[in-house]
Design a protein around this nucleic acid. Structure first.
Length: 292
DNA sequence: AGCTCTTCCTGAAAGC
DNA sequence: TGCTTTCAGGAAGAGC
């Protein structure tokens, strides 16, 4: 599933082949995951891709109108979220079309940008320059651009489970289930611990772990679990370094105990029950009533 | 504020 | 063997 490293890998691939090229036509198949399919079809032809960037798990294509574009005074942005199974890449028009390809953006040179998404949990948004601020305001900080004091400040006083906060895109942007679990394993922190109960040593280990994990995963071009491939169609390598995610029942690389899987924050969470000790008391109503 | 539950969707895997 | 059920999960929204 595409998280920050996978999206970064896609973005780096697109950045080498897309800027400077102009969309001349749009073809859409299923459109239920596209915010404004009519607008996409009408406004994108004539738009040139100026730059490709990433915001958390969003791919951000900055567009510039060419003389043939409608609304040629307006700067548009094509923002794409890959959801669970999304893929965005450039192919020649004569190349075979992968199943579940729902959007085709024809370029002036005979190639086309294609969006493929089996489950259609992704999103395609057409965003005007003025609305980009509102989109970014919903998102937290980039975890790799975050100094330790800011990291601590974002978690201070939060009574939610650390796993829930790592997954919450308005706290940090780009971390998903895999990299949350891998970071917590590295930092030896149980996913169900409350953020407010973490010591500064815990937080320091977690901050370091998130940075190490994400940087290594970007270097390895992401994790390919079921079907992730980069913009060129190549799988990533980071799944070979997974220490917790998907390893239920297998020995912990650190201590040999069996990795466990529990539901924390509504998500499968893999952790070592020995290296990542559980919080002392469940904060259930029953236990607090029993003590009162 | 933050928790759980539900919804969206498909295909793989497990169950019968 | 073949059909049915379950599960996975990012994000948003409802309800508590």
């Amino acid at each position: 599933m595409p998280e920050l490293p996978e999206v970064e890998t896609i973005v780096r691939g697109l950045r080498t082949v897309l800027p400077g090229h102009t969309i001349i036509a749009v073809r859409l198949e299923k459109t239920d995951f596209i915010e404004d399919p009519i607008g996409v079809g009408e406004l994108l032809p004539g738009q040139r891709v100026e730059a490709v960037d990433r915001m958390g798990k969003f791919i951000w294509l900055k567009l510039t109108p060419t003389p043939g574009a409608k609304n040629s005074d307006k700067h548009l942005n094509l923002v794409v979220h890959l959801g669970m199974t999304g893929w965005l890449g450039v192919r020649r028009q004569e190349d075979p079309v992968a199943p579940h390809t729902h959007a085709f953006f024809e370029l002036e040179d005979g190639r086309e940008l294609r969006y493929t998404d089996i489950r259609r949990f992704g999103q395609i948004l057409l965003v005007g320059q003025d609305e980009m601020g509102r989109l970014t305001a919903r998102l937290g900080r980039e975890p790799l651009e975050l100094a330790f004091p800011e990291f601590t400040a974002r978690l201070a006083g939060r009574h939610a489970r650390i796993k829930a906060l790592l997954l919450n895109q308005s706290v940090f942007r780009g971390i998903g289930n895999i990299y949350a679990d891998e970071s917590l394993w590295q930092a030896r922190i149980h996913p169900a611990r409350l953020a407010s109960r973490l010591s500064s040593a815990d937080l320091k280990r977690l901050w370091n772990a998130i940075r190490r994990v994400l940087q290594q995963a970007i270097e390895d071009r992401g994790s390919s679990i079921s079907d992730f491939v980069d913009a060129e169609g190549q799988p990533g390598e980071y799944q070979q370094r997974h220490r917790a995610y998907g390893r239920e029942g297998k020995p912990c690389f650190r201590c040999g105990a069996k990795i466990r899987r529990d539901i924390v924050a509504g998500r499968s969470s893999y952790f070592c029950p020995r290296c990542q000790p559980a919080p002392r008391k469940r904060t259930t109503r029953a236990s607090s009533r029993g003590r009162a």
